[in-house]
Every structure is written in C-alpha cells, then in structure tokens.
Design a protein around this nucleic acid. Structure first.
Lengths: 199, 199
DNA sequence: CGGCGTTTTGAGAGAGCTCAACATCGGTGG
DNA sequence: CCACCGATGTTGAGCTCTCTCAAAACGCCG
C-alpha cells in the first residue's frame, strides 16, 4: 500500500486540489503548516533558501509522490515549496489526517508502516549511491529489484528514468547495459531485463 | 526526539540486549520478525544475498542507529542482518511496540513523526548525492546544516565522518575545504565551520 | 615518549560527464 | 498510408574531476 492509498482511505473527501503555475510558490518557510501534499501532475521542489539567496534543494517531488509529511507534526514549514512546472497538487489537511491517526489505531499503524517502508527504500537507494562504478551500481539495482526468482527485473519507466534514479547519466547507463549484455551477464527485453548469470 | 528516545519511553523495560561477534548473523531473510533493533555498539549491515552469493548492501547501521523498522509490520524479514564488527544490539520486541501503538494514540503519532523526519532527512541526503562536484556538495551540506543564523555549522564527528556522509573520500573533502578557505568562503574552527560569504 | 587515528598534500589514472550526432519508436495529422 | 515530430535510445570522443595510492605532519591519549 502506498502512502496515497492510505491517505485517500483515511481521509476520504477531505483532500483539496490546487493548480500551480511554473515558478509559483506553494508554501514558504515559516508559514503555518496546512498539511501534506500529493503531486497529481507536474513537479514541485522543496528548497531551503540561504540568506545569500542560494537554493539548496531538499527534495524534488514528481507526480505520484507525497511531500512534506513531517509538516504534519510541526507548526510551521521549514522550507519553501516551489512548482518547477505547471502542476496540480492535492492537499490532505493536517487536522483531518491527525484526527484520523488519533481516532483509529489501525490507520495509525498503517501510516507508520508506509513511512517505515519509505525509510527502508530511501536507505537502500542511499546505499546504492555509495557504489562508485556504473556497472556495480547497476548490479546492485538489479539485485535489489529482481523479482522472487531473482532472474527478471521489470523496468518501471524509461531507461532515462532508471538512470536518474541510479544517479547516472542516461548515456552511462546505456553504455553499461550494452557492455553487460555483450558480456552475457544480462539480456534486454521490452520493458524488462533478464539476469543470465545469477549474480 | 529521536526514535530511540521514543522507544525507551514507550516500551520501558521491554528491550533485550544481545551481543554479537564480528561476522555473526542477527537474523536471516525468511525468519519470523522479532522486532526492531537499536545498535548500541559496533556495526551491523543489512544485506540481500542473491542466488549467486553476491551481497547487495541495503543499509549499514552504526551505534545509535535503529534498523528494521519495517519489520514491525511484516511477518518475516526481507534481508539478512550481519554484524561487521563485534557489536551489541538492543531488541524492541514487536508485540510490545505494536501494542503500545494501538493503545496510545499519542505514542503512535510520535512514532509517525519520528519516521516522517527520517524520511525527510534521507530525501535530503539523497538529493545531495545528485550534486556532482565536491565543492557544490559541501556547499549544500553547509547550507542545510547551518544553524538559525545561517553562519555556523557544528561538525558532529570527525571530518572523515562528514566525508563519508557526503559520499566523498576524506582527501577530497580536505582539499575542498582548504580551497574554500583559501577563497575566503569559509573559516574553519575547532569542531565547526563558519560561513563568511552568506551563500 | 610512543603509538594510533586524523588531517594534509602530492601525483597519476580511471571513470563518468559533457557535448555531439544519429537511430529508433510511437503518436499525430494530412 | 505516409510524412512529420518529439522523446527515447545509442554511440563516439575528449575532458574534468574524483578516486587511488603514497607519504608525511599533527594531535591526542596511554
């Protein structure tokens, strides 16, 4: 279950949609928190702006992501949220979400479960970034993403998306996959990769 | 509040300590989940072992960290946990933690808050790894870690620790800091860095 | 004082990034 | 049905930056 599934189940009808133009601000640091957001369309980035005006990006949320979960438990936002493209967001109001957490232990447990899974996934991706060579990083990705038989990896989006998730340029990923295929380590199919040698 | 503070407050006396030799297994994939662990001393790594015997590291937990939070909500573990050094771990039994979450909405909210904060921190660190040059990565780190006045960054551990958190070799970090100091961008103090130009 | 870990600087090599050109694919409209 | 177009996929060549290996200074603690 994703966080969004949980939210729409827990607070049905409470969410409000909002449309943003590219460059428009969703909230600013110091604003009273209104709740957490789901990105329906487009892209929103969370940034901390330093006194000198430089931006440090904390997170780039794209369609399907949630952001600002921690704002549920804070009085004010600790960063700015700015749409990088035209975007549509859905607000899950803080009061409604917290009320449901208090009222319904099952829901609270489910929410914690969703967050714990996110923590796990993020740690895995962070660990992956510690791997230096493209080939080993791809191997790590394949090993972690392989289905139960450990032989097939379904590719979620385009290879460009995978490259971005791996922290590689798409060129580097293409080259690496080509080399691995030439070495008989993998076989590329439409939307999937088969592992030939059990790694 | 850290996760550990929350745990010891929520399930006082329920935790059990266990001592591990280097190389010893704490749990294996498929084992029934017993709860989540805090590392008291040493280092434990979570790995997924592929059919061919290669290890994909999912997380390296060091003293003070918690691990396997998601196991609270699963019947079996999904990876192996192996001590990389002699280690002491503290087990917070699943039943006790879940019972407290069900019984006490305040505790459940607190737990969710801790997890949400972890998600935030991890996303920030992941975003940081998207920055390619050492200098910009250090700038990002400084901007995010600066205290309220945006002028001073307290260093938690040694610079080697910081280098590891940044995903840089310590040599690269030393060089970068030296250059930044030469350029008048920062000033290095004992256990802290002052930002001279507001970045 | 001696030993160990941290900090520092040097030199060289390798790996991925950047820029560039081209192929391929899927959808759209004439 | 075909031409067109944009995005994805693919390959090439050079460059830059960090990593690696090495060695030495420094600081802390027993």
């Amino acid at each position: 279950m994703t966080e969004i599934d949980w939210l729409s189940a827990a607070v049905p009808g409470a969410a409000k949609e909002r449309t943003l133009k590219a460059g428009q601000t969703l909230f600013r640091r110091g604003d009273r928190t209104s709740g957490l957001y789901e990105i329906v369309k487009g892209q929103v980035r969370l940034v901390r702006v330093s006194p000198g005006g430089r931006e440090a990006v904390l997170h780039v949320a794209v369609a399907g992501d949630t952001m600002a979960e921690a704002s549920l438990f804070a009085a004010t936002y600790h960063c700015d949220a700015i749409a990088t493209t035209d975007a549509v967001v859905r607000l899950y109001p803080k009061a409604a979400v917290l009320a449901e957490l208090d009222r319904n232990p099952k829901a609270a447990r489910k929410f914690a479960a969703v967050l714990a899974r996110q923590v796990m996934t993020l740690r895995t991706r962070l660990e992956q970034r510690n791997i230096r060579t493209a080939r080993d990083r791809v191997r790590h990705y394949l090993a972690v993403s392989a289905d139960v038989d450990g032989r097939t990896v379904a590719l979620s989006g385009t290879l460009k998306d995978v490259a971005s998730e791996l922290g590689l340029t798409h060129e580097a990923l293409y080259r690496t996959l080509a080399e691995m295929e030439a070495d008989g380590e993998i076989e590329r199919r439409k939307g999937a990769i088969r592992l030939l040698k059990p790694i």
